[in-house]
Amino acid sequence: MSSTTTGGAGAGEPTRRDFLYIAAVGIGAVGTAAAIWPFISQMNPSADVLALSSIEVDLSNIQTGMSVTVLWRGKPVFVRHRTQAEIDKAVADDKADLPDPATDESRVKKPEWLVMMGVCTHLGCVPLGQQGDYGGWFCPCHGSHYDTSGRIRKGPAPLNLPVPEYAFISDTRIKIG
């Protein structure tokens, strides 16, 4: 008995059918990716959101003892040029019994500049500056008192005023975000 081969190609060699199968799967994969890409792309942040992701603040116009409030991501950020007395008081209060313990050094990059979110950690009100029992910030809505480093000292707020991500670009400019 003799063996016969059909189709003219050996058992291990690719055939025209194999090529058509691989080409069809490849074209299908590329087509699926092209169809899905707009749906994935629309989830990226828009240009106006990216523009708000960081801001620069000029510090040269802020005199010692003054504060400015800037908006970042739709929320107020307090930038305070602290006096030496405020810095000394904040450092002295590091050893006080704090509800949310944090040293003044851990909250600032340069002692004379305090940068923090201006949103009370109790219910999201905006505290008033240089008021309250500790000379820092006072939230009149529910009576939270913050010290000269923005740490909660008294009242219902559970946490310190948060410090956003920021960096000094130069001696007179910071970038928040």
Rank of each mutant, 00 (worst) to 15 (best):
158 P>A: 03
132 G>E: 12
174 I>T: 07
26 G>T: 15
29 A>C: 11
57 V>R: 00
71 L>A: 07
165 E>V: 10
74 G>E: 03
15 T>G: 15
159 L>G: 00
150 G>L: 02
113 W>E: 00
76 P>W: 10
13 E>H: 12
131 Q>I: 07
169 I>G: 01
20 L>N: 13
43 M>W: 04
87 I>C: 09
148 T>A: 13
21 Y>L: 14
174 I>N: 07
145 H>P: 01
12 G>T: 11
105 E>G: 00
57 V>M: 03
74 G>W: 03
14 P>D: 08
134 Y>F: 15
155 G>C: 02
177 G>S: 07
5 T>H: 09
91 V>E: 12
81 H>R: 14
135 G>P: 09
125 C>Y: 08
56 E>L: 02
34 A>F: 13
115 V>D: 01
46 S>F: 03
161 L>V: 05
77 V>Y: 00
53 S>I: 05
82 R>V: 11
158 P>R: 01
66 M>D: 15
121 T>V: 11
99 P>V: 05
62 I>T: 02
12 G>R: 14
8 G>A: 13
169 I>F: 01
48 D>A: 13
138 F>Y: 15
12 G>Q: 08
141 C>E: 04
7 G>D: 07
52 L>P: 00
87 I>S: 06
164 P>K: 03
156 P>R: 12
15 T>K: 13
113 W>V: 02
40 I>V: 15
35 A>G: 07
162 P>T: 11
152 I>D: 02
58 D>T: 06
1 M>F: 10
174 I>W: 06
52 L>N: 14
84 Q>G: 03
15 T>I: 09
82 R>L: 07
111 P>C: 06
22 I>R: 14
82 R>F: 09
36 I>W: 04
125 C>E: 05
119 V>W: 02
2 S>W: 08
8 G>Q: 09
93 D>F: 12
39 F>M: 10
37 W>K: 09
23 A>C: 08
18 D>S: 13
84 Q>A: 14
139 C>I: 10
